[in-house]
Design a protein around this nucleic acid. Structure first.
Lengths: 342, 342
DNA sequence: TATTTTTGATAAATCCTTTTAGCAGCGTAA
DNA sequence: TTACGCTGCTAAAAGGATTTATCAAAAATA
């Protein structure tokens, strides 16, 4: 027994006036369009009484704006992305926008397909963690005047707005922190990937190492699904082959988790045998014994900046924002795992 | 320089035929509507050549279906919900549906507001983890002939389809497992909540306890944001006040994390001093030393069933599914934390 | 040849809104 | 009296699709 949805036309008919008048009143243009106060009030009362709500579909069709933003990440079940999703969602709803999400799995083909799908679904904007080889798709998007914002990584070769963090600087500082705590042989464990944030982290590490005349020692793991097997074993092997390691820096938290397993298996004691620090802080790092030092990305600021940029594009300044290329600072949390005084 | 979007009308004009014909061909009704093969081919070629894609907005408006499903959970940044989101998303896109997500924070007012918002946005279906006091809102939803599916918890007082897990049975079995491993005094740590899944877990625990003539020992923590402080201290106190505890059963994983902190602080050794088991398995439980036994919910099956139900409602059987009230079994993973033979 | 059927296509209504252009009616100024 | 401006409201187009009802021409039947 579904209540038939009431439309603007029904209201007009019931009140014996025109659709136009109702629409003007609905959109707060009564004064501007010289609708009498008397009629305005009458219509407003009636609308409230019947609980009329305009159809957003029809509005979108008419106005060419859907108030939908696509949030496309590598994997929505990843804690980092899920947390940002949560913040974004909050801010979007507050401003009358909805968020549709999708995961690329870092697969360029899937990303392209998804973007194509959404282009024709008349969404207004895209917040994207780009996969490799996505340049042209993103260029098209911008040319088609969609609002586009990259985050987590950006694409140097194209002029597209983004919100990222200081990967290089923080990696530099974390490495420095290990050095200052007495490490002479620091291993950097990362993942084989074109992702610019990963390259930046490696660069930061290498700079600090070189600055102090140390030897770079990098384990580059194949890019694969975090839940895949074998990562831990590979890290184990690396540690065994480099008996003189006295520090480990993990380029992201899931590598650290695997690494901690490896250290456990090898009966290496943290921070006695080795100091440990990781990029991407995680609740679990404070649960683990000893607590693991980590670089925390400012999730809330990232989300804030993303929505700020989106809203500026969508609600006013148009799809091109001059210089909305934002790099946010991280926070290094020093915990027991890298505290030599322990 | 945005390419102007091409519409069905443009195609008709370019080809000198009617909109109707184009539409019929687009919808695969060429044969049925006796459009000649020759013309059909010509139109299809043209459509491919210009890369025309129909406007989903217009289709939705016309057909009254938007191909959008709302996924409303307590908190999308929670690993459990995020993981299911990921699975749902995958299956939805495969079937031409989009997923809009939102988090209620378990706040009934926020939930109602969100549902109201989406009702007028003409979404087709709702997948919901209900907050308290949501009965009437959900009844309205069903009366308005939206496709509705509850999950994680359901509402006994209303006839609404759902997908949940065997909370009572699994809690019973986990408690039994502790008993069989020699526990005489098992503490159950849960959260003050009307949520039916929490009540069921408590009931399962109590049944097993009573069955074996043991004493029920429940710590009911106030419902609050997991990141709030003080949970760990409260658990600590509980453990100290019950010196004879030899087993702990956590009703959900974030309580276990807090509890593990507490045990750490108190220098309690697992599984020597206490056995530990938790509801809701988590990656960290296998990372923690010793590995923590836990009950794993079948995420993929849950997502599968949810989408199966949704699709049946949306693509055919209509909004009322007879007896789609599904309870899925969990898996108890016995690990070092509850293995007395250790 | 006259009538009916089939074939191949289309006009127009509909979904619900926004917005431009315009229409009466009335008072005022010339 | 004529012209003009203002007031209060509305008709109709547009946005992009689907679908019902209809129509002309050709083919089949009587």
């Amino acid at each position: 027994m579904a209540k038939k949805k009431i439309s603007i036309k029904d209201i007009a008919k019931s009140l014996g006036i025109s659709i136009t008048t109702v629409s003007f009143i609905l959109n707060g243009k009564a004064k501007e369009k010289r609708i009498s106060d008397e009629l305005t009030l009458k219509v407003e009362d009636y609308i409230k009484a019947v609980g009329y709500k305009p159809s957003h579909l029809a509005q979108s069709l008419r106005l060419g704006k859907s108030k939908v933003i696509v949030f496309m990440v590598e994997d929505i079940s990843n804690q980092f992305f899920a947390s940002i999703a949560r913040e974004i969602e909050e801010k979007a709803y507050k401003n009358g926008y909805k968020i549709i999400y999708c995961s690329t799995n870092n697969d360029p083909e899937k990303a392209k397909t998804l973007i194509d799908t959404f282009k024709v679904r008349s969404v207004d904007g895209f917040i994207i963690t780009p996969t490799p080889n996505l340049e042209n798709t993103i260029i098209d998007l911008i040319e088609d005047e969609f609002a586009v914002l990259l985050f987590d990584r950006w694409i140097p070769s194209i002029d597209c707005n983004y919100v990222v963090v200081e990967n290089e600087k923080s990696a530099f500082e974390a490495t420095l922190h290990l050095i200052n705590n007495g490490c002479k042989n620091i291993g950097f464990i990362t993942v084989e990937s074109d992702q610019i944030q990963m390259k930046d982290r490696l660069r930061g590490y290498n700079e600090a190492i070189e600055n102090h005349g140390l030897k770079s020692n990098v384990l580059m793991l194949p890019f694969q699904n975090p839940s895949d097997q074998g990562l831990s074993q590979k890290i184990q092997l690396f540690i065994q082959q480099n008996a003189d390691l006295d520090g480990l820096f993990f380029a992201t938290n899931y590598l650290a988790f695997e690494g901690l397993q490896a250290l456990n298996t090898l009966k290496k004691r943290i921070p006695i045998d080795l100091l440990v620090v990781s990029f991407d802080d995680h609740y679990f790092f404070t649960l683990f014994q000893p607590n693991i030092s980590a670089i925390e990305q400012p999730l809330e600021s990232i989300a804030e900046k993303l929505m700020e940029g989106m809203l500026r594009m969508l609600d006013g300044e148009g799809t091109y924002l001059k210089d909305f290329k934002i790099t946010l600072p991280n926070t290094l949390h020093v915990r027991a795992s890298s505290d030599a005084k322990k």
